[in-house]
Simulated assay, not measured.
Amino acid sequence: MTFITISEVGPRDGLQSIKPVMPLEAKKAWIAAEAACGIPEIEVGSFVPPSLLPQMADTAELVRFARGIEGLNVVALVPNAKGAARAIEAGVHGFSAPFSQSETHSIRNVRKTHAQMLESIAEMGAMAKEAGVHFAVGLATAFGCTIEGAVSEAVVVRNAVASIEAGAMELSLSDTTGYADPAQVKRLVRAVRAEVGDKLTTLHLHNTRGLGLANALAGLEEGITTLDASLGGLGGCPYAPGASGNLVTEDLVLMLNAMGLNTGIDLEKLLKVRAILADALPDEPLYGFTPDAGVMLDYNERIAK
């Protein structure tokens, strides 16, 4: 049975784009509860200046807490070498850096051109190698940008290759703005994998226009093995206007489990974790069809096959 890794990004991507700051103890309860459901990897936060994103000020403490959970892969986002140093010091298993394929978005998001970002990736790659930490690069806005519009596939492929050459160990394609469609996902995954092979493992998808699950399935059909998702669909990019709506973890788990794919995740337990978010963030909407509709009557028979 094929194993598909679901990486929960809600504690980072979900919380960075909302105004309330989720209490530290609630974050810990969320992370622990999801790990207990079988979620194998959680992006617990990002190492950015607290003045820019106060929601992420406690990331180092969350890393230390999450490292105490047996079997959980603890990762974080870093924007630059300073963030990478903090992530390594905190004890992450791995960190990722966002590399926006829209240069305008890159400048707004991390204040770097493409050339400057590749220099930064080389620096972070060397740091990761020395520390024995996994280093991934997320090719953000790979499917389109709310600032520039269409993004050249040739640019994405070129930057993917350059990122690996600079020291990235793994790549993801990110639909930061919810622009992707299934045909585009298939085309771009094929194009990038033709150059970097199985170093492209991951899709980070948003459900902004309702195509998240369709795009996830398209990626799986092209050999993608890891999918990012956020509990309750929390999230978006604060520097990309209109980029709301992460792929809903609960709906993704339902689809994959029902298809007979192995996620290792207990969906019924996962649905109960939403209560932690609802209590800690009472004014934030939570999304997802599965929590409202429930599982199919024959769900257990489907996942047993």
Rank of each mutant, 00 (worst) to 15 (best):
V248H: 11
S100P: 14
M124S: 00
G83H: 09
G236I: 01
N262W: 01
D58T: 10
G232L: 05
L271M: 07
E123F: 02
I224L: 05
V151F: 00
R64E: 08
A214W: 01
P40Y: 13
V248F: 08
V63R: 08
A84D: 08
V295N: 03
P98V: 00
A66M: 09
T141K: 01
I88Y: 13
A150C: 01
G264H: 02
A183L: 06
N109K: 05
R274E: 03
I4M: 10
S96V: 08
G235H: 02
T141W: 02
P282C: 01
E8R: 04
I31Y: 09
N159I: 05
A258L: 01
E222D: 09
L77N: 03
S51Y: 07
A280F: 10
I107W: 00
Q101S: 11
A140N: 00
M1D: 11
T225R: 13
N262S: 11
T202L: 14
N246K: 02
N73R: 14
L227V: 06
G71I: 13
L271S: 02
D292P: 12
D58V: 12
F47D: 00
E165Y: 06
L252C: 11
V48C: 14
K199Q: 11
P54S: 09
E301C: 08
A304Y: 11
S46G: 15
A218Q: 10
I4Q: 13
M127Q: 07
E153G: 09
G294Y: 08
V48F: 14
L77S: 12
L62C: 14
G233Q: 05
V78T: 10
N80W: 05
S7R: 13
S152E: 07
R12A: 05
F3C: 15
A240L: 11
M169N: 07
S7D: 14
H206T: 05
I276R: 05
A140Y: 01
G68M: 14
A191Q: 03
P285S: 00
L77Q: 05
P11S: 03
T177E: 09
D58P: 15
A136Q: 08
R86T: 11
L256R: 11
T249R: 11
D292E: 15
